[in-house]
Computed example of a mutant assay.
Amino acid sequence: MSDTSLRLVWVYPDLLSTYGDQGNALVVERRARQRGVPVTRIDVRSDQPIPTSGDIYLLGGGEDRPQRLAAERLRRDGGLNRAVANGAIVFSVCAGYQILGTEFVNDLGRPEPGLGILDVRSIRNEGARHVGDILGDIDPRLGLPPLSGFENHQGNTVIGPGAQPFAHLRYGNGNGTGDGTEGAWCDTVFGTYAHGPVMARNPQIADMLLKLALDVHALPPVDEQWYDALRAERIAAASEPA
């Protein structure tokens, strides 16, 4: 960590904050404070520089034009790339996930350079949007329970050799490539198409980020009753497509 207070950076809430993704920042912050970990939360708007001394950076989803604007400004700024080079942890959702990759299709229908932080490339799915609940098994190396979330996107994302799938789906579309993969990760950088917000439905993901930031193998237990109830409700409500 950069100092005695964990620095949590919420990137561009004015451009990348659809489908309740700001809830991810709220959950990470609360679960840190429940363990007695002091947190400094920094909400960085798109007209502000990205600090490079953060411990955890969160990016949410966004509509097509805000996504392009966010990518342009993040490329010019360079702060997120420098933070990752210094070992920062990044968790991204949907449009934020695509921005971390090498390329995606923007609102003008043209290839848009990403940040190249994660070895993925996204194209536009020419069929129907990928919409609905998803459930999948997270890479066992991460030691997490099944992923529960909600997807709403029209991207197909191909994972390159420098990354690995975040999860393999039991149902849903995820990366949209037909191979059952969902999201991607490498070292301390993670991406997913799951909204929900995903941290509220999967608090163990938030805990994983905290353990990485604090450099510990375990965290003190906290009351999981609310989170467990929400997970059970959403998993039960979702049905596997025919």
Rank of each mutant, 00 (worst) to 15 (best):
G172K: 09
V84L: 08
C94Y: 10
P66V: 11
R45C: 08
P241W: 00
A167Y: 02
M199S: 01
A184N: 05
T157L: 07
Q67E: 10
A88V: 13
R121E: 15
G172Y: 09
H217K: 08
C186I: 00
A218N: 00
T157I: 07
G20Q: 02
I159F: 12
V39Q: 00
A70K: 04
G116P: 11
D3V: 01
G174W: 08
Y57F: 11
G101R: 02
G62Y: 07
W226T: 04
V158K: 15
E112D: 15
G116M: 09
R121P: 14
R124K: 12
L169V: 12
V105P: 09
A184F: 00
N125F: 13
V28A: 08
D223V: 01
Q164E: 10
C94N: 10
G196M: 05
A232E: 01
G176H: 13
G183N: 01
R129V: 08
R121V: 15
R231K: 03
V189H: 07
W10R: 03
R45Y: 09
Y97P: 11
L108K: 09
L100S: 06
S53P: 11
L219R: 03
I42D: 05
I99D: 09
R201G: 05
P221D: 04
G20D: 04
I50Y: 03
R121Y: 15
Y193D: 02
I138M: 14
D133S: 15
P203Y: 05
G87T: 06
I138A: 14
S92E: 08
L16S: 02
V131A: 09
R129S: 12
D207N: 03
G78D: 05
S2P: 04
G116N: 11
G79T: 08
L74G: 12
D119P: 09
G160P: 05
V90C: 07
R76H: 15
T192D: 01
G155E: 14
